[in-house]
Design a protein around this nucleic acid. Structure first.
Lengths: 224, 224
DNA sequence: ATTGCTTACATTGTTTACACTCATAATGTG
DNA sequence: CACATTATGAGTGTAAACAATGTAAGCAAT
């Protein structure tokens, strides 16, 4: 465990939420490694709170699939095998296709404008090479689509699924060969939505996710 | 002689899990009504435990979308509007189609046999008119398909989505006009899987879910 | 060496107590 | 009576104490 865990206590939030976000970020960034134990007392000491908020945060991580608990043994950071990754990406593909299809049905001029701006921001950030910013603007682009789909539960699921791969995403975004490909794909999706070509955008998004799958698998294989 | 020692087969479960399942079932069955407050002390007293397991269970319900909490105000049972229902069913359709497609790819002789038996059991139960049993055998039929899809996360999501509609499902299963339709749909799905006709089964399952949506909407409108 | 037992310790499960917040009712004042 | 102000109580947020369980080390007996 790193000793970089620090609570961000500015705004008022129940401690459980602060702890939850702190731990989640630590897991997603790889500071807490898969299989690492999440011990209540230790975490409580490190974060300067009591066990109760820690426990509640762990319950939440558990439901998000980021932690696994064994009764009377405690919790640990969820391991993710290649098979798990494939499973998640299959689901994500189906839901991303659904989302973009719905977004296509609901597309308005304003949303299209918003999407275009997100597209520009993404393209711009790829030229800076700042991985974190690229990841962020990428998320924002897709977020516009998700919002347009007008299905909060779907958005929720997709965000959750995306999160589960964050670790690998930032890894493969370090490879700047792919930036032009990603920008191109985004552009095509934008065009498809502009012309309300549902069949086209669904196909594009499916392809987008499959490409991600290939990249992520490369990362995993390289790591071995 | 002495009493025979019997292993307590009821696996040990932390109270939070017991509470979680109890509350969830109560919500799904409509015993706890949408908008009803979930007060910790009150629930603790009712279930004979302290507040901590209640709190942890509420955190879990929250992540499942069955409860909503307002900081420093407490939690209440999530309200489900018709729009929410539609949203859920859209997701379910996409994932059910995914599942049956994967099942189609992975189908084996044994699984096909299992599915056939589940089909027979379902058909048989529709002739008894026992709604609970019909719901159960229906679940079992789909469970075989889910298992064959070989994607635990997907199974998890689908079970969760199914549960969110439990209230309405038992309601519309009271209408015995639809039994023959359901049996027929199941038969067709079985046949499609037997012949590995992926396109066909995906279409059938989509139709199956859409039919459910129509029924559920009828129920909701009638209730008003 | 292996097994079975004992003991001590680490960690989770659960209860209890106290602090804090917020809404609302009661009170006072013009 | 209107309106601001102050109790008050219900309920959550957090911490700390206590109970039960898992785990590992040591030791004796075979």
């Amino acid at each position: 465990m790193t000793d970089q865990l620090r609570l961000n206590m500015n705004a008022y939030l129940p401690l459980r939420d602060v702890v939850f976000h702190t731990l989640r970020e630590a897991i997603l960034k790889g500071e807490l490694k898969p299989g690492e134990r999440l011990m209540e007392l230790q975490l409580a000491a490190k974060l300067g709170v009591s066990r109760t908020p820690i426990r509640e945060a762990i319950r939440m991580l558990e439901l998000e699939g980021l932690a696994v608990t064994f009764p009377r043994k405690g919790a640990e950071v969820a391991k993710m095998t290649e098979k798990d990754m494939e499973d998640v990406l299959k689901i994500r593909r189906a839901l991303d296709e659904l989302a973009v299809g719905l977004a296509c049905d609901n597309m308005t001029e304003e949303k299209l404008e918003e999407l275009y701006e997100a597209l520009l921001r993404f393209e711009k950030s790829t030229r800076t090479g700042d991985v974190k910013q690229i990841a962020q603007t990428d998320i924002e682009f897709h977020e516009v689509i998700y919002q347009t789909a007008d299905n909060p539960k779907l958005v929720n699921l997709l965000n959750n699924l995306r999160e589960q791969m964050y670790r690998y995403r930032v890894e493969y975004l370090k490879n700047d060969d792919i930036y032009p490909v990603l920008v191109e794909e985004h552009k095509k999706i934008y065009e498809g939505l502009k012309h309300k070509d549902k069949k086209m955008v669904v196909e594009l998004v499916g392809c987008h996710v499959v490409n991600q799958e290939i990249m992520v698998k490369n990362i995993i294989h390289k790591q071995e």
